[in-house]
């Protein structure tokens, strides 16, 4: 005999695919923003990454930048600047 109950889960929202950006074949001579997401000492981490680029890939214009607001909030101004002036961005360190 089958026993039946009602499903206790809620209704999930629809998901709309966000397509990935095309990549440059090289970052040489281009600007990469290293975005401090402002979570738990991520500023120290991202500055160390900036130092790595300076020492190992000086041909890449890697720039540390701190996102405004707490880590859960977007920073439209910064994101627009990255889109207009940057080739790529690394965002970290989060969870």
């Amino acid at each position: 005999m089958t026993v039946r109950a009602l499903n206790p889960m809620g209704y999930p929202p629809e998901v709309t695919q966000v397509h990935m950006a095309e990549r440059f074949d090289t970052l040489s001579g281009r600007r990469v923003y290293l975005v401090d997401a402002r979570f738990d000492d991520s500023d120290i981490f991202m500055r160390q990454m900036e130092a790595w680029f300076r020492e190992n890939r000086p041909d890449i214009d890697a720039r540390y930048v701190a996102k405004r607001g707490i880590y859960t909030q977007p920073d439209p101004e910064l994101f627009a600047r990255i889109r207009d002036e940057g080739a790529a961005a690394v965002v970290g360190v989060g969870h």
Partner: peptide, 15 residues
């Protein structure tokens, strides 16, 4: 990508 998110109304089992 297809994002299948169906949640069936009922849950059945043998006992």
């Amino acid at each position: 990508v297809r994002f299948d998110r169906s949640t069936p109304r009922y849950v059945d089992a043998e006992s």
